[in-house]
Design a protein around this nucleic acid. Structure first.
Length: 465
RNA sequence: GGCGUCGUGGCCAAGUGGUAAGGCAAGGGUCUGCAAAACCCUCACUCAGGGGUUCGAAUCCCCUCGACGCCUCCA
């Protein structure tokens, strides 16, 4: 039984879908005006892992992730670059899609954009006005009337009365209540705009997600995800809009990931402590970023530093060690020991599943993989043949694949192989003559070139890395 | 100040009523010409601190201290 922590109830609940075996999953994507950073990668990885696990559990997942391509920051950036805002957004959308692909993140089923959802957004706002949940102001803005929503604040645990004190109305706004938020913003001179019943303008930040949910998944969805920095006001406002519009419960499960921490602080564009995904991947394999996430708890802050990164790197190597072939001199295990290994693989699978069923406990699930790796490696040391290792190794592949790990040995150019093999052949002769300094020189120099040699009784093996 | 999450060994971290998983790091060993990899062994009488409930608590309740996030844009 799969159990998921629901931000709305602050409890771990049994996962029951609206339709049997189908999951409607919406995850807030990014505002595209700059390079995405590893904090965005964390969030995308968390929901990729969740989506992969749901699919492994047999659910058909319709995964929607939006791109916010109409926004103040995009407009500002475009103005400073003298570029068309939608062109700029398009560029960063392509960049981001490439980042996700490089991280081995499965593409969402659909990626709706604000600019492509305009008629529905306008219709949505119109509907809210008709029902008395929104009102157009004289300045051309349209605001959501928070007092019209009885349980406004229930996601983030806030009460309207408590929030009144600190709230302010910005210059130029014409709100009935300081907490009312913009559904539609009147265009300033020179800004990109769309025609609407309230004049030229563009949507506010929150309405887009309500509209795209409705367009792609319907009035009710199973899981709504995003970073926990979106709980208030973004998700709170989404609930208010969607439920006021449809009169139905919007999302059944609200799932929020914790923030990536760099130097004890949240990594964010405004703090400037950023490492871009591109930069990260120029130095590390995609599996390392994924392992960093898997090692942690998706809801908790995730430490990003040399130590946690180094551990993640070693962990990936360790999983890979389980996939190496039998030794050349393998004599075979007894039938009893071989079936013991197969049984171990089944145990690993049930421990893995049990952990993942418990609110996607990836750290516990990875621990099950390590137990399996140890069993495989011990069996190999004891002389297991490839046939005997095979069932356990395919289980390791299967389960690590559910986590989205590739576990690929690094590849060099195919042409290099024959030269490396030639060097190893020569070095073997050198070793026969016990010319150790020369033998070690070859090994050290190859290491510098990214080729690792390992000597054993059966001869020398090598791999990239 | 308000709301929320959380504090487990040097680091990351599982465990949420029955007596502390796993990984990294560290130390010792097997193997090796030496390495590397792999394997074996060691590594928290204790779970921020203090009360309480219970036969029994890291796990439940209360208080204190501390961290982080949100309350303005944010994954």
């Amino acid at each position: 039984m799969l159990r998921i922590y629901n931000t709305l109830s602050r409890k771990t609940e049994e996962f029951v879908t609206l339709e049997p075996n189908k999951v409607r999953l919406y995850v807030c994507g990014v505002t595209v005006y700059n390079d995405a950073h590893v904090g965005h990668a964390m969030s995308a990885l968390v929901f990729d892992i969740i989506r992969r696990y749901l699919e492994y559990r047999g659910y058909a997942v319709r995964h929607v992730m939006n791109f916010t391509d109409v926004d103040d920051k995009i407009i500002n950036r475009a103005n400073s670059l003298g570029e068309d805002p939608l062109k700029l957004a398009e560029r960063y959308i392509n960049d981001y899609a490439q980042n996700l692909a490089d991280l081995n993140i499965l593409p969402a089923t659909v990626n709706p954009r604000v600019s492509g959802t305009m008629p529905l957004i306008i219709q949505f706002i119109q509907g809210l006005i008709e029902k008395g949940h929104a009102y157009p102001a004289a300045n051309g803005d349209v605001y959501f009337r928070v007092t019209s929503d009885d349980d406004y604040g229930r996601l983030s645990g806030r009460k309207l009365e408590d929030m009144q004190a600190g709230a302010r109305i910005e210059i130029g706004e014409e709100k009935e209540n300081p907490l009312d938020f913009a559904l539609w913003k009147a265009a300033k001179p020179g800004e990109i705009f769309w025609e609407s019943p309230w004049g030229k303008g563009r949507p506010g930040w929150h309405i887009e997600c309500s509209a795209m949910n409705l367009a792609e998944l319907g009035e009710q969805i199973d899981i709504h995800g995003g970073g926990n920095d979106l709980v208030f006001p973004h998700h709170e406002n989404e609930i208010a809009q969607s439920e006021s519009y449809t009169g139905k419960e919007f999302a059944r499960y609200w799932v929020h990931n914790g923030m990536l921490q760099l130097g004890g602080e949240k990594m964010s564009k405004s703090l400037g402590n950023i490492i871009s995904i591109k930069e990260f991947l120029s130095k590390h394999d995609a599996d390392v970023m994924r392992m960093l996430v898997l090692n942690g708890t998706y809801r908790a802050p995730l430490m990003f530093n040399d130590e946690t990164l180094g551990a993640a790197e070693k962990n990936v190597e360790r999983l890979k060690s389980g996939l190496r072939p039998a030794s050349a001199s393998a004599k075979g295990l007894t039938d009893g020991n071989a079936s013991g290994l197969t049984a171990l693989a089944e145990t690993a699978k049930s421990n893995f599943t049990e952990a993942m069923d418990s609110d996607f406990n990836t750290a516990g699930a990875v621990a099950a993989l390590f137990e399996l790796v140890k069993g495989i490696n011990t069996a190999r040391d004891n002389g297991a043949t490839n046939d005997q290792l095979q069932p356990a190794q395919s289980m390791l592949r299967e389960l690590s694949g559910v986590h989205g790990l590739r576990l690929q040995e690094k590849q060099g150019s195919g042409d290099a192989d024959k030269f490396i093999n030639l060097l190893i052949e020569v070095r073997s002769e050198v070793r026969k003559q016990k010319l150790w300094p020369l033998s070690d020189l070859i090994r050290d120099r190859l290491k510098e070139l990214g080729v690792t040699l390992e000597d054993s009784k059966e001869g020398t093996t090598w791999r990239w890395g």
